[in-house]
Computed example of a mutant assay.
Amino acid sequence: MPIDFSHLSPQERLDLIGELWESLDEGDVPVSEGVRAELDRRNAAFQESRVKAVSWTELRGVLRPGRA
């Protein structure tokens, strides 16, 4: 039996989606091996990028030399 959410505003429905999502445990959401592999790849790329990151002060110095 479908639940009618039409009385809720779009923001209220989005808030409800967030609350429902947060109520789930990690094991409640099935993830295929392909998706898991892609998530692992992206996480590794993110970690690698963090090592190469520079601070805003350093970047500003490169973009606007002489203006710290």
Rank of each mutant, 00 (worst) to 15 (best):
A37F: 15
S23G: 11
A45N: 07
R60V: 08
R50H: 04
R13G: 03
S49V: 11
E19R: 06
E38R: 14
M1H: 11
G66I: 11
R41P: 02
T57F: 13
E33M: 15
V31K: 12
D25K: 07
S23L: 13
V35I: 12
D40Y: 14
E19A: 05
E58P: 03
L39M: 04
G61R: 03
S6M: 06
L16W: 00
D4F: 02
E48Q: 12
R64F: 14
R67T: 04
V35H: 13
A53Y: 14
L24N: 01
D28F: 00
V29Y: 01
D40M: 06
Q11W: 08
Q11A: 15
L8Q: 05
R36N: 06
D40E: 04
A53R: 15
W56K: 14
F5I: 09
G34C: 08
E33S: 09
V62E: 05
L8F: 13
R64E: 08
E38A: 10
L39S: 11
S55I: 02
A37R: 15
R64C: 11
E26A: 12
G34K: 05
G27I: 00
R67G: 03
E33N: 10
L59Y: 04
Q47W: 13
V51M: 07
D4K: 04
E26Q: 01
V62R: 13
A37L: 13
L63F: 03
R60N: 13
D4L: 00
Q47I: 14
R67E: 03
V29F: 07
A53I: 12
R36G: 01
W56P: 03
R36V: 01
S55N: 00
G34D: 02
G66H: 01
P30W: 08
L59R: 09
P2E: 06
L8K: 06
I3D: 11
P10H: 03
G27W: 02
D25W: 02
G61F: 04
E33F: 13
A45R: 12
R64M: 10
A53W: 15
V31D: 09
E38H: 12
D4H: 00
E38W: 08
G66T: 00
L63A: 01
P2T: 06
V54W: 07
F5V: 11
R64P: 03
W21E: 12
R67A: 06
R42W: 03
V51A: 12
G18F: 04
D28W: 01
R42N: 13
A53F: 10
L8N: 05
V31R: 07
R50D: 15
T57W: 11
D40I: 05
A44V: 07
F5C: 05
E58G: 13
V29P: 00
A37G: 14
G18M: 00
E48F: 09
D4V: 05
A37E: 14
V29I: 14
T57I: 14
M1C: 11
A53V: 12
S49G: 13
V51C: 05
D25F: 09
R41Y: 10
L20A: 06
D15H: 02
L8W: 10
M1W: 07
R13C: 09
W21S: 08
K52T: 08
V62F: 06
E58L: 06
D25C: 07
R64D: 10
L24E: 01
E26I: 00
D40F: 04
E38T: 15
L63D: 04
R60Q: 02
P65K: 05
G61T: 04
V51G: 02
L39H: 02
